[in-house]
Structure formats: structure tokens, C-alpha cells
Amino acid sequence: MDPFATLGIERRFDVDLTALEKRHRELSRAFHPDKHAGGMPSEKRAALARAADVNEAWRVVRDPVRRAEALFALAGIPVGEDREPKAAPAFLMEMMEQREALAEAQGAGDRDLVARLAEAIHARARETQTILTRVFAEPGEDLAPHLHRLGELRFYARFLDEVSAIEDLLDDSAGRETRP
């Protein structure tokens, strides 16, 4: 499935997220099963399948990692962690250090440090995204040498998920201590 075609939007990495939301709502208005409740049975089935595809495509396109995966795949480059080149040792080392720092910040309950570490990774992710925007926009660009950037994006995403989980934990314990 080409999620960009399903949504009827241009195939590019730097999608306009506001326009994407709007497009998703328009297509939902057209295909959501509620809008076909009085339709013919095969029409209802087709609308349900289409609405599901639209939601699935929306989920892919709005997430930078899955969007990049889709763009590589559409360019004929197979993606998936076992098919992509291993990350550079220097990068892995650096990420390990960041993770250790995060674990320490969590142990110390230092919310500010957690936020600073997250911001640093955010900045790195933005940098990678800028590069990907350029290479995906370049006609005839050889994409294969850029495949390792996908692994990097996943690393950043996982790191930020972890930050989010840590913040939840810190919030919950704070919530228990200071009753509103």
C-alpha cells in the first residue's frame, strides 16, 4: 500500500502536518462507515475497508520513522532492522552514553536533566530529518547510502519513548506525594 496515494498527497518527507490532519478529516467524512450506514452492502464493506486504509496511511505518514520507511520501500529499498546496515560503532557508543545518562537522571529523579537529554536527542532527530527531506526530494538521488539514517531515527524515537515513560513514572510518584 502506498500511504501517500491512499491519502492523495505528494510523496515527500517534509509533510505539512496541519494539511495532513485536514486531509484525514476530509477523507474520513467521505469514507467513515457512519457515512455509509444507509448504503448498499458492498458499498458499506468498501467504505469500511477504505476508511481503515485511510487511518492506517495517516498513522504511517504522520510518524517520521514510518514515513521514512514507506519512502525507502516505495523507492524499492527493502527496510526492516535485519535488512538495514548495522549502525556505526561510534554512534552506538554515543547512544549508550546518552542512555546511561538518562538512567542516572531517572535514578536521581532529576526532571530537568531528563528534559535536557530529551532536547539533545530531539535536535539530533531534527538534523537527520532535514537530511532525509533533502535526499528524498532530490530526483535520481541514490537512497541506499542513506538507509542507516532510518536506524538512527528509530534509536531517537525509542530514546524519546523511554523519556516519556520516565516522565510518566516521575509524574505518578509526584501525583501521589502532592495530592491536588
Binding site: L7, G8, E26, L27, A30, F31, G39, M40, P41, S42, E43, A46, A47, R50
Partner: peptide
């Protein structure tokens, strides 16, 4: 007939 109607709806939705 239903398929044709749905295809047209899709075409209209995706300008």
C-alpha cells in the same frame, strides 16, 4: 454498480 459508485467517491475525495 456499487463498486463504480465507491470508485467515484474515492476519486472525488482525492482531488
Amino acid at each position: 454498480f456499487a463498486t463504480r459508485r465507491m470508485n467515484r467517491a474515492i476519486a472525488r475525495a482525492i482531488e
